[in-house]
């Protein structure tokens, strides 16, 4: 995969910041408005995909490849489990272990914010990995002979 023309590359590099920012916004305000970890993660994945589509196989070789997706997906999942387990500090599984303020600020969701971030990372990396598996992956590296189902659960 070679990447696209200069116009696309320039536009993509301008846009990518905004896409990631929007994804981060959706993730971080998931407890206040529609959105949250999954929706924001999908946007993040779209941003990563934009890079790959515009610049071709180059970013894949510079560490944005299949292994990147695998590692971050696992880290997201482990992070989510850690948030759930830390609930034991407050007594039960999944309990809010940080103060649960009222109102509509960023920090009012208790541990919901943290779990949204973890889910966002997992979904973003997982979807990106799935896209790579289907499209760019075979072109950039030799065909891999195993596959893995991503058991995404919110």
């Amino acid at each position: 995969m070679r990447g696209m023309t200069l116009i696309v590359k320039t536009t993509a590099s301008l846009l990518i910041g905004f896409v990631v920012l929007f994804g981060a916004y959706i993730i971080l305000t998931g407890h206040l408005s529609p959105g949250g970890g999954f929706a924001g993660g999908v946007i993040l994945a779209a941003g990563l995909l934009l890079i790959v589509l515009a610049f071709g196989a180059d970013p894949l070789r510079k560490g944005l490849g299949h292994n990147f997706a695998l590692v971050w997906e696992s880290l997201g999942a482990v992070g989510f489990l850690a948030v759930a387990l830390l609930g034991f500090i407050a007594g039960t599984f999944f309990a809010h272990f940080i103060p649960h303020l009222t109102g509509f600020g960023l920090l009012t969701g208790g541990s919901i914010v943290l779990s949204n971030i973890a889910i966002g990372i997992k979904v973003g990396a997982g979807l990106f990995g799935a896209f790579l598996m289907l499209a760019a992956f075979r072109a950039s590296e030799s065909a891999d002979k195993t596959e893995k189902g991503d058991g995404n659960d919110t």
Partner: peptide, 12 residues
Amino acid sequence: VIGLSVVALMVV
């Protein structure tokens, strides 16, 4: 989300 992962796997 579940449907998405099932369909992704099917497409693969």
